[in-house]
Every structure is written in C-alpha cells, then in structure tokens.
Design a protein around this nucleic acid. Structure first.
Lengths: 332, 332
DNA sequence: CTGAAAGCGCTTACAG
DNA sequence: CTGAAAGCGCTTACAG
C-alpha cells in the first residue's frame, strides 16, 4: 500500500501519526523489505554505471580488472543495469576528463574510475563527489581527492607482506635489491615504504642495498637493471615488479640472477607463470585485479539500489594472495 | 504467456509445431529468462535446505563452516529459502542416519552433510543420490559413495603446497617430522601422500624422518609428540595439525622446538594466531572453512532453482590460503 | 493525506 | 492444446 511504503521510507505525504503507527508495527513484525522484489521494480530505473580506465593499451593487470567488470556485468544484467567501459589514450588526463563529462552528459548513474594523477581530474572528482554523485576510485588512489569509495590494494601492507616473505625465503647473506615501478604512482611509493619499514623493524638480517626506480620502458628498464646488478654483484634477494616490466626480468635472466638470487615479484601473467614453473621466480604477490573490477562495479550497484547488507566502506582493500610453484593451479 | 513458457522449458502440453516456432524466435531474440523474476516466483515453492554436521561439540574449524552457512542463509532469506542445521553426538553414525531420515520426513528439498565414514551413512547417501535427491558432501569426502557435489579442500594439493612451503623456508639440515591428524579421515591420508610425493619428486634436500599419527586426544598427542622429538632431536622442520591438536603444540613448545625448528601447520584459530604473532609458527595453510559452508548451501540453492550460470561441478575445491606474520590481518 | 491500480518478468492453475 | 488471470513483494503515478 502506498501509504505504508511512504511511511517506512520517509517519503513524506503521510500523516505523521499514521506514519509513526506504521513504523511501530513494522518494527514489531521485524519487517525487512524483500530485496528481490525491489530489484524487479528497479528495472524501471534503468541504472547505468560507467567505468573509466586510464589507458587504452592492454596489459595483463587491467585485462584482469576488465574480466571482473564483465563478470559483474553479466550478474547484473537481470537487474536491468547497463555497464559501459570507456578508455582514453594512456595517461592522457585531458581525454580522461572528457570521458567523465561525456558520461555525465549521457546521464550515467555512477562512475568507477582509474584516476590519472592530475589536478583537473582531482578537481572534477571532488566536484562530483561533493554534489552527491557516486564515484569509486578503482585500483589507483590519488591524494587531495575525495570520493565515495576506493577499491584496490593496500599497498603499504603489500610491502610489509613482501618483507615477511623475504624473511621466509632468505638463507644467505640477505643482500636485497628492490626494483620498483615508477614512484609517480602513489601505490608504488607506499609499497616500497611498507617494505623498508618492516625490514628495518623486524628483519635486520636483510639489508636493502638499493632501490631502483623503473620507467615502464623495456629498454630503459633493462639498462637500469643491468647497471644495478653490476654494481651489487653479491645480491641474493631481489624484489621486482614482475608482470609490469619485461626489460627488468630479461636483465635478471641474462645476468644470471635467477640462479644467484631468490626473486619475489608482483602481479601475474602467463610469462610470470612460466618463470615460476621454471623456478626462476620464487613467489609472486598478486592483488587480485579481477576481484577489484568486480567489487567496484558491485559496490556502485549496491549504492544505487540501497541493497547493501553492510554499509559501504570508504576503503575496500582486496586481500593479496601469494603464488608459487605448487599453488599456481589455484589461479584461474 | 503459458504456452511460451511451456514451450521454452519443454513442459509438454504444447503443439510441437508451435513449440518449435517459439523456440526459434526465442533464439533469434537471444532470449534469456530473468532470474530475478524467477526468484520472486520461487518464493511460492518454499525450498528448505538441511545441513547435517558430524559433531555437536564445537571446534574452530566447524564454527567457521557454520558462519559461512549463516552468511548464505541471510543472503537467501529474501528468496524464501529456509536453512536448518542439525548436529549429532560426535561421530555417531546411527544418530546421523536418524537426522537424515528426519530431514527427509520433514520434506527438506536438499541436504548438505559432513558425512561420517560408516557403511550405513554411505548406503543412505547412495540411495538418496540415486533417487535424484540432491546431496552435497561438505568438508569431508568418503569413498564408495556417490553424490551431487563435494565442497571442500583438495587435500592432495594441500600436501603439495606444504612441500613447496617447506622448501621455501628451509635453510638448515632439512630434517622433517610430520605430525598428522588421524588417518581414519581420508583427507589426512591424501594430504600426507601429497606432501611425501612432492618432497620425493622435487625437494630431495628435505628428508622426512617420520610420520606420526595423532589421535585428537590432547594428552596422548602430547606424549606421542614428546617421544618423537626425543627420538629425532636434530629435527629442524615440523609440519603439524595446528588448530586441531593442542597437545601436540604444547609438546613442541615445551621441548623447545619452536626455537629449534621451523613449524608449518594447518587451519586457524585464535591460539594459532598467537603462535604466529609470537613467531613460534612460521606459517599456516588454511582451507577457508567459511567459504566451504557458504558455497555448499549456495550450490544447493542454485541446483534447486536452476539459477547457476555455470553448470554445477562435481568437485568444488576451495583454494587454500597461506597466513604468516604479516598477512594475519587479511583474515576476518 | 490516502489507497487502489498497474507494472517489473516469471510461472502455474484453470477455464476454455 | 491454448492463453487470460493471478500472484511473488515492492514502488510510484494517479485519482480521490
């Protein structure tokens, strides 16, 4: 009945006395609205969720994120929700801004975005968030920026986990070389910090000889890596970006450090699988990109429909997993 | 329209010509039935799922299984599904059989059971399965018994993972002592096999000195452990049941083997957490009991409603996770 | 301010 | 064999 519904959801146009009486009875009967029926009705609303990426070139990490998004899309299709993914030229902030504006113009209901770290993007996201429009940051977090939720990796913790893993596998001199992807991305900075801090606090037998920042360019990364390995020939522990930098891996291989050192890396791809199967890489720490894509979209859907059992969290950290020779088959 | 529905689902009472025409058009339009609407309708059917445990005393493992079941129960309440959990005195097959019969009499729609390894239970499950009644085995698998699905750990793989982990952490002599819970449970036999086989094939630097079967009785386990440790004083690697046997852990502690050896165990409880935080235990391999409970019930629901996107698998192995000092916080 | 009606998409009992 | 009707539980537009 219309009145009951209006009373329960404080939609107004109800006599206050009646409203109170209804609410009391609802509580007594422990009434919970049925989310299935609500969903069926919600099809009328034609919700639309837009996912905005920061690159258009492909990489194993974001291919997995996309898989998660598609999985959620399938699950949500019965709910009448549309999901659209847009890409801009790699790290082109002006183009990403255009995509945001375009989505708004097309009357999207919510946005999940891998934000490019640029003032115009920050300003735009802040603007949207303050106007009450739901924005979720996906995989990449940027500072001076407010939003509904972040879905991604806890990078600092990921660094600490790396330290713990190094401690588990290390048996020799404990001379470590850290290769990190560009510190331009905040997450990589946090991860390196977490690693260093945990080593200093708990594992003083391991000494970090040097931190080398890579570029993403295979040839440059190869050269940077080669130079460092020459300078620190006694290295017996290596942490590297894994799936992110093939130039780095190639240098490690050619310089013979897959034999001389224990290598721990991040992320996953078919080539990483081969390195692990070949016993070149001891273990990789993966941040479950597929779950990230899935959960970002799912959270926006739940936000739009008000269907979340648990209130939506600001920081949704997806737990990492550790893969090595024996449990590779658990990866799908 | 009735005819359309009957034609699409081959429910009969439709002119074959008309049925074919309808099916052709449906394919052209790429028609997919809406699962939300179907669910709403399904409330009429009042599905009832019964979960039958094998013990009534509490333990951390099955407390987690129960948590997963409750989580699923909450999620399914809107679908009008009832879930009931029944327990028998610990490992009392006659009583468990009674519970099964009682559930059937109460017209339950499906059963998830932690089966006691006893002929009467096997016979009963076979009988039910052959008559088309949906039965899922939960956590424990037994042989000579057929069923809809098994949901639980891949024990052999779990043993192999243990071997890989031992290889990662071992640096000394590699003298291993394996403490296993009762081999009366098939899973424990498989796990020990997986471990031994993987060591023999890949990690010959580690030598398994002895396999000690524990009983579940704390005092006996304490004595068995003490005796073995005295006999193999050079042991520097230990695999043990963890949350399952406190007598075993106490003996390891008192005999000083938390210092002398690296210890890897299984499962998780608050006391295991403390051992890890205290650096006594290096790592624990957990089989995610909560997921097992959740998925068992969820699969039965999907089987009953025919809502599964992917056809139901016979063996649903829940991936294990590895926890150590740094990633304990990822546990919930 | 109130409540009967219509609709979300599916299924079955029922009248023809 | 066929198809209009009623119902799953919710919400809103609309007539009073």
């Amino acid at each position: 009945m219309g009145t009951v519904d209006r009373a329960l959801h404080n939609r107004g146009r109800v006599n206050p006395d009646v409203a109170q009486r209804i609410q009391k009875i609802a509580k007594e009967l422990n009434y919970k609205p049925n989310s299935i029926a609500k969903s069926l009705y919600n099809r009328n609303k034609k919700f639309k969720i837009t996912v905005i990426l920061h690159i258009e070139s492909r990489n194993p990490y974001f291919d997995d994120v996309s898989k998660g998004i598609e999985k959620c899309q399938q699950e949500l299709s019965d709910f009448g929700v549309t999901i659209e993914t847009k890409s801009c030229p790699d790290f082109d902030a002006a183009e990403q801004l255009k995509l945001i504006n375009q989505a708004i113009q097309e009357e999207t209901s919510a946005i999940a975005i891998v934000p490019i770290n640029h003032p115009t993007i920050k300003t735009k996201i802040n603007e949207l968030h303050q106007s009450g429009f739901p924005v979720i940051l996906l995989s990449n977090i940027i500072d001076q920026c407010d939003f509904l939720s972040f879905v991604g990796c806890n990078y600092k913790l990921s660094g600490e986990i790396t330290a713990g893993l190094l401690n588990m596998v290390h048996s020799g001199a404990g001379k470590l070389l850290l290769f990190s992807p560009s510190f331009h991305m905040m997450g990589h900075t946090l991860r390196a910090q977490g690693l260093k801090q945990q080593l200093a606090e708990h594992y003083t037998a391991i000494s970090l000889q040097k931190t080398c920042e890579l570029t993403g360019d295979n040839i440059k990364d190869y050269q940077i890596t080669m130079k460092s390995l020459e300078k620190y020939p006694d290295t017996d522990l290596i942490v590297c970006p894994g799936a992110y930098s093939h130039g780095n891996l190639q240098a490690l291989e050619e310089a013979g450090f897959f034999k001389k050192a224990k290598v721990i890396c991040y992320d996953y791809s078919n080539s990483i699988r081969k390195y692990i199967e070949n016993r070149d890489i001891t273990a990789t720490i993966v941040q479950n990109p597929q779950d990230q894509g899935y959960i970002a979209v799912k959270l926006l859907f739940e936000h739009l429909t008000g269907n979340h059992l648990i209130p939506i969290q600001k920081y949704n950290y997806i737990p990492t997993k550790i893969y090595f020779y024996e449990n590779l088959c658990d990866l799908n």
